[in-house]
Nucleic acid binder design. Structure first.
Lengths: 207, 184
DNA sequence: ACATTACTTTATAAAGC
DNA sequence: GCTTTAAAAAGTAATGT
C-alpha cells in the first residue's frame, strides 16, 4: 500500500516536473519571440490539452511545446513562421511541423492557413512604416486574394511584396533587401511576387 | 460531358522476390554501374535505361523496382533484370509474383483554383494546406485509397494507388466534389 | 537580373539501425 | 523515425554568371 502511494507520488512529481518544464520552455520561447502574454496563455492551454489527451507519448516535450506555441501564434492572429519558432527552440523545423499537424488534428484546432495580412503589422513596424502604408498593404493583399494571386504562395513572400509596393506608393520606399530581411524571404521572391501583383492589379511602380 | 481523365502515369513502384538470397558483393563487381554501400543503405542500387527504371536489390532476394512509366514496363524491366542476373551466373525464380505497390500520376482539371475555398469546402479536418511549407493542398481519399495534391493551377498529383484505375477514380472524386461545391 | 540546380510535399516496398 | 529509389506538381532558395 505504501508503495502504491509512493509510485503515485513519483508519477505525480514527474508529471508536475514535466509540465513545469514545458511551461518554462513556452515562456522562454515566447519571450525570445517577443510574444504577448495572451499568446503564451493560449499556448499553455493547447499544451495542457495535449497532455490531457496523452499526445506527448512518443514525442519530446520540447517538440510539443514548440508546436503548441506555433499553433497559438496562428490562433491569435500573430503568426510566426516555422523557421522563426525553430530558431528559439531546440527541435528541427521538420519535427515542429510534424508535431503541429498531429496536435492540430487531434485537438481539432481547425486553423486556416496563415493569411499574408496577419504579417503586415509586424513586418511594417520592423521597417518603421506608418499606418498608412499598412492600410495600403492590406488593401493590395485583399485585391490580390480576390484575383487569386495568393493561393499556393508563401504568405510571408506575398505580404513582403505588398508592403514593398505600398511603401513606394506612399512615398516611403524601402528596398527589396530591407523588406526581404524583416520578412525572412529572399529578394528574388519579393521580385517575383511584386511583379505579379503589379501586373495583375495594374499598379504602376515608378522608381 | 465531361471528362476523360487526362491522367498521366509518372512513376510505378513494384516489389517482388527473384531469389532466396543474393550475394550483393558479387553483383556490384559484375554490374559496373551498380552502387552498394552497406552502411549507407542495405540495398544495392542499379539503374537501367531499357525502359527506364531503378532497382533496389536486397540480400534476401527481394527487389524493388521504381521509376517505370507503365505497369507493363515493370514486368519488362524485371524480366530483363532476371536475365542479366542469370547471365552473371545467378539463378532466379521463374515466374516471380510482382506486386505494384504505388503509382504516381498527374492530371489537369484545367481551371484556376482557390485553395482556401477548397480547404473549407472539403473540410479543414480532411485536408492539409500549409502554403508556407508547400504550395499544394493535400487531400486524402479513403475510396479509392489515394492521396491527391491539389494546386492552384488546377494541376493534380495522385499517389498511393495500386492500379491506374485507383488514380483515375481519385481524380474523378476530386473533380466531382469541387464541381458540386461550385469551385471548379 | 536571369539561369541552373536543389529542396519542400505525397505514397511505397525493401533490411537494419 | 531514418537511410535509398523514382516521379509529378509549384514555390522558394542557394549559387553561379
Amino acid at each position: 500500500r505504501l508503495r502504491k502511494w509512493q509510485r503515485r507520488i513519483r508519477v505525480s512529481n514527474a508529471t508536475e516536473r514535466n509540465l513545469a518544464f514545458a511551461l518554462s520552455e513556452l515562456d522562454r520561447m515566447a519571450s525570445a519571440l517577443g510574444l504577448p502574454r495572451t499568446v503564451r496563455e493560449t499556448a499553455s492551454v493547447i499544451y495542457r490539452k495535449a497532455v490531457d489527451k496523452n499526445l506527448i507519448r512518443g514525442r519530446s516535450i520540447e517538440g510539443v511545446a514548440a508546436a503548441a506555441l506555433y499553433a497559438a501564434c496562428r490562433q491569435c492572429g500573430v503568426p510566426r513562421t516555422l523557421d522563426e519558432v525553430e530558431e528559439v527552440s531546440r527541435v528541427s523545423r521538420k519535427e515542429i511541423g510534424r508535431t503541429y499537424r498531429f496536435i492540430s488534428r487531434e485537438l481539432s484546432l481547425k486553423l486556416m492557413p496563415t493569411s499574408p495580412i496577419d504579417y503586415v503589422p509586424r513586418f511594417c513596424s520592423g521597417l518603421n512604416l506608418k499606418g498608412e502604408v499598412q492600410s495600403k498593404s492590406v488593401e493590395i493583399l485583399r485585391q490580390a486574394s480576390e484575383k487569386e494571386l495568393t493561393s499556393g504562395r508563401g504568405p510571408t513572400g506575398v505580404a513582403a511584396a505588398a508592403i514593398y509596393i505600398a511603401s513606394i506608393l506612399c512615398g516611403e520606399r524601402r528596398t527589396q533587401r530591407e523588406v526581404a530581411d524583416v520578412a525572412g524571404v529572399t529578394e528574388v521572391t519579393i521580385r517575383n511576387r511584386y511583379k505579379e501583383l503589379a501586373e495583375e492589379l495594374d499598379i504602376e511602380i515608378i522608381l | 460531358m465531361t471528362n476523360e481523365s487526362n491522367l498521366k502515369i509518372e512513376n510505378v513502384v513494384a516489389s517482388t522476390k527473384l531469389a532466396e538470397e543474393f550475394d550483393l558483393n558479387l553483383i556490384v563487381e559484375k554490374f559496373q554501374t551498380a552502387e552498394y554501400n552497406k552502411q549507407k543503405f542495405p540495398g544495392l542500387v542499379y539503374r537501367v535505361s531499357d525502359p527506364k527504371a531503378a532497382f533496389l536489390v536486397f540480400t534476401s532476394g527481394k527487389v524493388v523496382c521504381t521509376g517505370a512509366k507503365n505497369v507493363a514496363d515493370v514486368h519488362t524491366v524485371i524480366g530483363n533484370m532476371a536475365k542479366k542476373l542469370n547471365g552473371i551466373g545467378i539463378k532466379t525464380i521463374e515466374n516471380p509474383d510482382i506486386a505494384v505497390q504505388n503509382i504516381v500520376a498527374s492530371a489537369d482539371l484545367k481551371a484556376v483554383l482557390n485553395l482556401n475555398a477548397i480547404a473549407i469546402g472539403l473540410g479543414l479536418e480532411n485536408i492539409e494546406y500549409e502554403p508556407e511549407q508547400f504550395p499544394g493542398l493535400v487531400y486524402r481519399i479513403s475510396d479509392p485509397k489515394v492521396v491527391v495534391l491539389i494546386f492552384s493551377s488546377g494541376k493534380l498529383v495522385v499517389t498511393g494507388g495500386k492500379t491506374p484505375e485507383d488514380c483515375a477514380r481519385g481524380v474523378e472524386v476530386v473533380r466531382e466534389q469541387l464541381d458540386n461545391m461550385g469551385l471548379l
